[in-house]
């Protein structure tokens, strides 16, 4: 997702790199799991896991520029 959009050719400093982004997302997943485990909604964990997996596939495909528009169609 660090690719610039088509049509924007202004040079910009980049945000976090791919590795850092992946780590940040892992951290978020951890927080999300902890939230459900800690609160009274632990029974929703299986659903959360499925959704996180779906999201992971989705983000991976989004990162490939030319497939991006088709993401939802392929998976």
């Amino acid at each position: 997702m660090t690719d610039p959009r088509p049509g924007t050719d202004t040079p910009q400093t980049r945000g976090p790199g791919r590795v850092e982004t992946a780590l940040l997302r892992l951290g978020t997943v951890g927080e999300l799991m902890a939230l459900f485990l800690r609160g009274g909604r632990w029974w929703m964990m299986p659903l959360v896991v499925v959704l996180v997996l779906v999201s992971a596939v989705l983000l991976f495909l989004q990162s490939i520029h030319y497939i991006a528009p088709f993401v939802y169609a392929v998976i």
């Binding site: 980049r14 945000g15 976090p16 982004t21 940040l24 978020t28 999300l32 779906v54 999201s55």
Partner: peptide, 24 residues
């Protein structure tokens, strides 16, 4: 709802870091 959340909003921290160019 799921398209918006799984593709974007769930990853607000990443989004902020990337778009505003600040350390997470």
């Amino acid at each position: 709802t799921m398209r918006v959340w799984l593709g974007d909003k769930l990853w607000t921290r990443t989004l902020l870091a990337r778009e505003l160019r600040i350390p997470a």
